[in-house]
Design a protein around this nucleic acid. Structure first.
Lengths: 223, 223
DNA sequence: ATGTGACTTATAGTCCGTG
DNA sequence: CCACGGACTATAAGTCACA
């Protein structure tokens, strides 16, 4: 396996994780459909500019592109995910006593669902002492067919808007991730929304990381 | 600063950290001197194959090339380093009781010095219960003019030989590093010498990481 | 030891198509 | 939706003489 085939496989993985066809990715990159195909097959010695264009389109750091985390070449089917009741895929909880809000995403969410969730979360936050809120986000189960979900553009924009809203109210934000890919994605989101100073995105590849009980006291100084 | 200039700067940094001229690097890569120069100035849209060739020559992962750790553009002068007495730059210690050997590299070492050190370390190791030896290597002060030293090819080969010799005798190896660059370098070395299974290369960017006292009991289960 | 401009040739990347 | 092909144009690779 040479570097070009390797890169091609990686691209295919990440494209499928993002639920895009070669056609759609090419269009978003401003590159040719057949070109993306031949890169994926390892037939092209792609240049740095185009690598960057593709990475920006997929919203993934170049360095992540060359790391050792790998995924299947199966496309992430979100359809079946979205059939599960929302209460299985999203849960939140706020505590006035600890001035803390936390939520868990355990599957895919549709754009409409995120919109209504945003309203609820903002209302919940406003019950707390603003400026000093601790926010704990648990994305460890945000998976489809056993692999991490990568956001679509429209979805990312929604989360970004929500994070921007939360930023001035929070003193600390912790986001738990289920992969380096998720961590990369959340860090990029954090940089864009300007919250990188107060936010930490965490991921371990310990065996039990994904299933450990969510305990705010292990991330924040509480009592 | 576009991606090409960025890449060029990065290349220059890492080349200087490796104490190579454009000429020497080009020769080792099998590329033209002026080509390397124009890449460093961000004038070329370099392709993936050539990126890989350069990375292999510098013995650095592609992913590291695109990470956020940066160095100065000053060349690492090893000459003045090598004038300091060897006892300041290298120290080792073995404990039969704990079946442990540890060493500290605190500056540059010449090829001759490494050869004689190797002999001493092997002799020290043979005093222990073989197969169960714990090895602790402290590279946190392996610096020249305040920045991490990157090995020359000949030097790497020596360390690799030493590591290969130690491998069958050790049950665990911990290497402390002073940068992601050092960590990258040591991990590559570990993969090549086949010891990656028992070796862990550690680095934190905590403030006191570089100066913390060396305490084997914090890395191994001892007593 | 590196920067510059001018040059050739190889191949990256596009656009049309087919199965 | 994707693999593959042929014909085309733009651009990267690679070399040189000279500062």
């Amino acid at each position: 396996m040479n570097i070009l085939e390797d890169f091609g496989m990686r691209l295919k993985e990440l494209r499928l994780r993002s639920n895009l066809s070669q056609d759609m990715l090419a269009a978003r990159c401003g590159l040719d459909r057949t070109y993306i195909g031949s890169v994926e097959r390892g037939e092209r010695n792609i240049s740095l500019k185009n690598i960057q264009i593709i990475c920006n389109t997929l919203d993934i750091d170049i360095s992540y592109f060359f790391c050792d985390e790998r995924f299947s070449l199966r496309s992430a089917s979100l359809k079946s995910e979205l059939d599960r009741p929302l209460t299985e895929r999203f849960r939140y909880y706020e505590s006035a006593e600890e001035n803390l809000i936390m939520w868990q995403v355990s599957g895919a969410l549709s754009l409409e669902e995120i919109k209504s969730i945003s309203v609820d979360l903002k209302a919940a936050c406003l019950k707390l002492r603003l400026g000093k809120v601790k926010l704990l986000v648990d994305n460890r189960k945000m998976m489809a067919s056993g692999e991490p979900i990568v956001f679509q553009h429209e979805i990312t924009e929604r989360w970004e808007e929500l994070q921007r809203w939360f930023l001035p109210h929070c003193e600390q934000i912790i986001v738990l991730c289920n992969s380096k890919l998720m961590q990369n994605q959340m860090n990029r989101l954090a940089k864009r929304s300007g919250i990188i100073e107060v936010q930490r995105c965490l991921y371990c590849d310990d065996e039990d990381w994904l299933t450990k009980e969510l305990r705010p006291e292990s991330y924040f100084n509480i009592r």
